[in-house]
Amino acid sequence: MLRDMSRGTLDERMGIEIVEASAERVVATMPVEGNTQPYGLLHGGANVVIAESVGSIGAAIAAGPGRYAVGLDINATHHRSARSGIVTATATALSLGRTLAAYDVVITDDQGRRTCTARITCMLRDQ
């Protein structure tokens, strides 16, 4: 189902693959290749895209049927660069309320080293 929802989206163009998804935890991978800036490093904006994707998916699951999640805030701190391989983003719920969901997102490289830390807050709304 998540794969079908990604057709024609930015996630698909960036090669983001969902590995695990629940309201409490979402894990996804993304290739570095094709998502770099001119110096050959993973683009910082690509980190933000995958962070927003995993946080938004978790928030949408937390919202439940007939509701949806809308991003309110996202920030990211880039710790180290990635030049090749795959990065993995893991969103862990910090707070799951009736109207807000917040996630801590840790992005790591192929060697398990943290490359970025992000936080995303989503508003949960009725349709």
Rank of each mutant, 00 (worst) to 15 (best):
1 M>A: 14
2 L>G: 01
3 R>N: 13
3 R>H: 09
3 R>G: 06
4 D>C: 00
5 M>E: 05
7 R>N: 10
9 T>Q: 08
10 L>I: 08
12 E>M: 06
14 M>L: 14
14 M>A: 05
15 G>H: 03
16 I>Y: 02
16 I>M: 09
19 V>G: 00
20 E>K: 13
20 E>H: 15
20 E>R: 15
21 A>P: 00
21 A>M: 08
21 A>F: 07
22 S>P: 00
25 R>H: 05
28 A>Y: 03
31 P>C: 08
31 P>R: 06
32 V>G: 02
35 N>S: 06
36 T>V: 12
37 Q>I: 06
38 P>S: 13
38 P>D: 06
39 Y>N: 13
40 G>H: 10
42 L>A: 04
42 L>H: 10
43 H>M: 12
43 H>S: 08
44 G>K: 02
45 G>I: 04
49 V>M: 11
51 A>M: 05
51 A>P: 04
52 E>S: 07
52 E>Y: 01
52 E>M: 01
52 E>W: 03
53 S>T: 15
56 S>A: 04
56 S>G: 14
57 I>E: 01
59 A>S: 04
59 A>L: 01
59 A>E: 01
59 A>V: 01
61 I>W: 06
61 I>T: 06
63 A>H: 02
63 A>D: 03
63 A>P: 01
66 G>W: 11
68 Y>I: 01
68 Y>L: 12
69 A>H: 02
69 A>C: 02
70 V>E: 03
70 V>T: 13
72 L>E: 02
73 D>N: 12
77 T>M: 10
77 T>R: 14
78 H>N: 10
78 H>V: 12
78 H>C: 12
79 H>N: 11
80 R>C: 01
80 R>D: 13
81 S>H: 14
82 A>Q: 12
84 S>A: 15
87 V>F: 10
87 V>K: 06
87 V>A: 08
88 T>K: 11
88 T>V: 13
89 A>Y: 10
89 A>L: 07
91 A>N: 05
92 T>I: 13
92 T>L: 11
93 A>E: 07
93 A>N: 07
93 A>D: 08
94 L>Q: 12
95 S>R: 14
96 L>P: 04
98 R>T: 12
98 R>S: 14
98 R>F: 02
101 A>N: 05
101 A>K: 04
101 A>F: 07
104 D>P: 01
104 D>F: 05
105 V>Q: 07
105 V>H: 09
106 V>W: 04
106 V>C: 08
107 I>M: 10
109 D>T: 05
110 D>E: 15
111 Q>I: 03
111 Q>S: 14
112 G>Q: 10
114 R>F: 00
115 T>Y: 12
115 T>Q: 11
116 C>A: 15
116 C>L: 08
118 A>I: 09
119 R>V: 11
121 T>H: 04
124 L>P: 09
125 R>V: 08
127 Q>D: 14
127 Q>G: 12
